[in-house]
C-alpha cells in the first residue's frame, strides 16, 4: 500500500510546449486512480514520470513521503503494463511472466512456480510454454498484467488497459483488473483517453487538459458536477443553457430555473440528457419544447428538442408517446442542474 504524491511536476519535451505543467496530485494507496484526458494532455507523460522512464524538469515524486525522483526505473517498484502489451515475443508466456523475478535473482524453480500461479489468477493456467504469438490480443494483455503483478509492485501503472479490446473482453478485463487490484491492494494508476473506461475502472479520476489538472474526484462527480463546460462536453454533455444566476434563480431568455446552490461568476447551466423529463403538469423548471427527432439507440431512445433557438437532447428508456413536430413540457429537476 503506497501513496504517490506528485508535487509541482513540470516536464517539457525538446522543441515543444509543456507536456505537464506545475502538476500536483495525490494518488491514494490501495485505490485505482485514472488519469483521464484527450490525446496530448500529458497523461502518458505523467505515467512514465511515475515509472521513472522519464525525468521531470522540476518538481518531486514521492512514494509514501520518500522522494523517488533519483531512483532509477528498475529500482522504483512502479511497474508499468503498456497499451500494446509489449510481451516479449522471443520468450514463452511463462518466461515473460517470470521476467521481473529473474531480474531480481529469484531462483528458477521458485519463479516458475510463482509465474504459473499468477497465470492461473489471470485465467491463463497451463499457458506457460506457449509462445506469445499463439495468444489473442486479450490474452497477451493478461500476460502483461500477470508479468507486472508477479513482481508485487508498490504501484501498478496501466496504460490504456481496455482500449484495444472489444466490448465483451473489456468487461472481462475490467473485472479481472478490479478483482486483482482488490486482492493485492496495490495502488493503481490507469491512463486512458476514454471516459467510459475511467468511470468503470477507477475509484478516483484526475481529468487533464493541456498538461494541467482540471478536475479531481469520484467518477460520478464528473457527470453530476462537472467543473466546466469543457469537462461536461468531454463526458458527453450536450445541453448548455446560457443565462444569469441571481441567488438560486437562474434567469435565461427561455425561462427561469431554480438551482440547488447559489454561485457567482456563472454564465451557463448544464443538464445530462438522461435527467431531462417530460413533465406531467406545468411546474417550476419547465420549458415548452418541440420534438425534432427521436432515435432508438439499442439500449435507450435519444430525443432532440428545439426551444426557440436552443437545441436540447434528452434520453429515455421507453419511447415517447409524442410525434415529431409536437410540443410538450420538459422538466429540469433542480438537483440535476450544474452551473459554471
Amino acid at each position: 500500500m503506497t501513496t504517490v504524491q506528485l508535487s509541482s511536476i513540470t516536464k517539457t519535451y525538446q522543441g515543444s510546449d509543456f507536456a505537464v505543467r506545475n502538476f500536483d496530485l495525490t494518488i491514494p494507496s490501495g485505490k485505482i486512480t485514472a488519469l483521464l484526458g484527450p490525446s496530448g494532455s500529458g497523461k502518458s507523460t505523467l505515467l512514465k514520470l511515475i515509472a521513472g522512464l522519464l525525468t521531470p524538469d522540476s518538481g518531486d515524486i514521492t512514494f509514501d513521503d520518500v522522494s523517488v525522483i533519483s531512483t532509477p526505473a528498475e529500482s522504483r517498484g512502479a511497474v508499468m503494463a503498456f497499451q500494446n502489451n509489449l510481451v516479449f515475443p522471443w520468450m514463452s508466456v511463462g518466461e515473460n511472466v517470470a521476467f521481473g523475478l529473474k531480474m531480481r535473482g529469484v531462483p528458477k524453480k521458485q519463479r516458475q512456480q510463482q509465474a504459473a500461479e499468477m497465470l492461473e489468477l489471470v485465467q491463463l493456467g497451463g499457458f506457460n510454454n506457449r509462445k506469445p504469438t499463439e495468444l489473442s490480443g486479450g490474452q497477451q494483455q493478461r500476460v502483461s498484467l500477470a508479468r507486472a503483478l508477479v513482481t508485487q509492485p508498490k504501484v501498478l501503472l496501466l496504460d490504456e488497459p481496455l482500449s484495444n479490446l472489444d466490448a465483451h473482453l473489456r468487461d472481462e478485463m475490467r473485472t479481472l483488473i478490479q478483482g486483482l487490484q482488490h486482492k493485492f491492494e496495490i495502488t493503481t494508476i490507469v491512463v486512458t483517453h476514454d471516459q467510459e473506461e475511467a468511470v468503470i475502472l477507477a475509484d478516483q479520476i484526475a481529468l487533464l487538459f493541456d498538461g494541467e489538472l482540471h478536475q479531481l474526484g469520484q467518477p460520478s462527480t464528473f457527470y453530476q458536477q462537472p467543473a466546466s463546460r469543457r469537462i461536461a462536453e468531454f463526458f458527453g454533455g450536450t445541453n448548455f443553457i446560457p443565462g444569469t444566476l441571481i441567488g438560486t434563480d437562474f434567469r435565461t431568455i427561455y425561462g427561469d430555473f431554480t438551482v440547488r446552490e447559489p454561485r457567482t461568476g456563472v454564465s451557463h447551466f448544464t443538464i445530462r440528457p438522461e435527467r431531462i423529463q417530460v413533465a406531467q403538469a406545468l411546474s417550476a423548471n419547465c420549458l415548452m419544447a418541440t420534438l425534432v427527432e427521436s432515435t432508438f439507440m439499442g439500449t435507450h431512445y435519444r430525443h432532440q428538442w428545439q426551444v426557440e433557438t436552443l437545441a436540447l437532447v434528452s434520453t429515455s428508456v421507453a419511447p415517447l408517446t409524442l410525434a415529431v413536430g409536437e410540443e410538450t413540457l420538459l422538466y429540469f429537476p433542480s438537483d440535476a442542474l450544474t452551473c459554471f
Binding site: 512514465k48 515509472a51 521513472g52 522512464l53 532509477p72 526505473a73 528498475e74 529500482s75 512502479a78 511497474v79 508499468m80 503498456f82 500494446n84 509489449l86 516479449f88 521476467f99 521481473g100 531480474m103 531480481r104 508479468r147 507486472a148 513482481t151 501503472l157
Partner: peptide
C-alpha cells in the same frame, strides 16, 4: 525503446 522500457519497469538494469 518500448520493450527496453517495459523491461526497466520490471526491474531489469542496464546490462540486463
Amino acid at each position: 525503446e518500448d520493450y527496453e522500457n517495459a523491461a526497466a519497469s520490471l526491474g531489469a538494469n542496464r546490462w540486463q
